[in-house]
């Protein structure tokens, strides 16, 4: 499966001559409306069968009922939790490497000359009696993505901006990049296809949702001009990896994520996770296949309880 397959699939996704001729006829239809009737979209559609909706609803109800019956009773267990970064357990005082795949981290320069970073957040809690976990961040923000057509709900912000689509010249169907304007108390809608937030809560079982991706994002706004220049040189120039690490460290600053584990009995536990960097061997940093020319040292990101 390669890029070429996408190109050839797109080549095949084309109109035939008959359809093109119909489009050409539109010219006369518009300039002389009596000459040609334009088929309305509605004629090509039929109403959905309500029975199918009812059946789907019933299936959901039955599924939910079954699921409820087999839920384990955790009330006898004591509260416990373990923090995991990918599969690795995170213990106090020991930094764990993020399993940084080829796309685990990116920096890019915006039109505003600022540098933006984006880091995978492959963190989850395991344990007993955990109801949910609330994460908050001291700088930058979280980006929440949900990749699923069936759940492709727009966040409230998207819907608000969507209304602008009425004006064909003014396309706005996404929300801005910056974390600015997001208050510390603002919660994301974790079921939306995209959202940005300083704080969000995820249900214990929902942590395993493979359709959701969480990233930490931020920018270089806090840097001085000189620091910013150094960062740019390190990111976009050919510099030693030590300089690159120093640039990332400067950009991230003291980036701390606070997680609050909410137990079923109403009690909570709090942990602070620091995001850092470390120079490591490629083999150590990623589970991805490593091309021969990429052997040697690289920079990876670390999660550490502080």
């Amino acid at each position: 499966m390669k890029k070429n397959s996408y190109i050839s699939a797109m080549d095949k996704t084309a109109l035939n001559d008959k359809q093109k001729d119909k489009l050409k006829d539109l010219y006369n239809a518009v300039n002389n409306p009596t000459e040609e009737k334009i088929m309305s979209i509605e004629k090509k559609r039929i109403r959905r069968k309500p029975l199918a909706v009812l059946a789907a609803s019933l299936a959901l109800l039955i599924g939910f009922g079954t699921f409820s019956l087999v839920l384990p009773n955790k009330s006898n267990n004591e509260n416990s939790f373990v923090l995991k970064v990918n599969a690795a357990e995170l213990k106090e005082g020991k930094a764990v490497l993020a399993d940084t795949s080829a796309f685990g981290f990116a920096v890019s320069e915006g039109d505003d000359n600022l540098d933006y970073y984006s880091i995978d957040f492959p963190v989850k809690y395991e344990g007993d009696n955990i109801k949910s976990v609330t994460y908050s961040i001291n700088k930058g923000c979280f980006e929440l993505y949900r990749f699923s057509d069936s759940n492709e709900k727009k966040s409230s912000k998207d819907q608000e901006l969507d209304t602008k689509a009425e004006n064909e010249e003014n396309i706005e169907y996404s929300i801005p990049d910056e974390c600015d304007g997001i208050s510390n108390s603002e919660y994301a809608k974790v079921d939306s296809s995209y959202d940005k937030t300083k704080k969000f809560t995820v249900g214990y079982d929902d942590q395993k949702n493979s359709e959701r991706y969480i990233y930490i994002t931020g920018d270089s706004k806090h840097l001085t001009t000189n620091e910013s220049d150094e960062v740019k040189k390190a990111f976009y120039g050919d510099v030693a990896i030590e300089k690159e690490k120093a640039a990332f460290d400067k950009l991230l600053g003291n980036l701390i994520i606070t997680s609050t584990i909410n137990f079923n009995d109403g009690t909570t536990k709090t942990q602070n996770i620091k995001i850092g960097t470390k120079i490591v061997d490629y083999k150590e940093a990623t589970t991805d296949e490593i091309p021969p020319e990429k052997r040697g040292s690289t920079l990876s990101f670390t999660f550490e309880i502080v």
Binding site: A106, S108, E109, G110, D112, I171, S174
Partner: peptide, 17 residues
């Protein structure tokens, strides 16, 4: 699309991921 390069960049990146 009238968006920032960074938005396009990150969406392309996420899409590819």
């Amino acid at each position: 699309l009238g968006k920032k390069q960074n938005t396009i960049n990150s969406k392309l990146q996420r899409g590819r991921k």
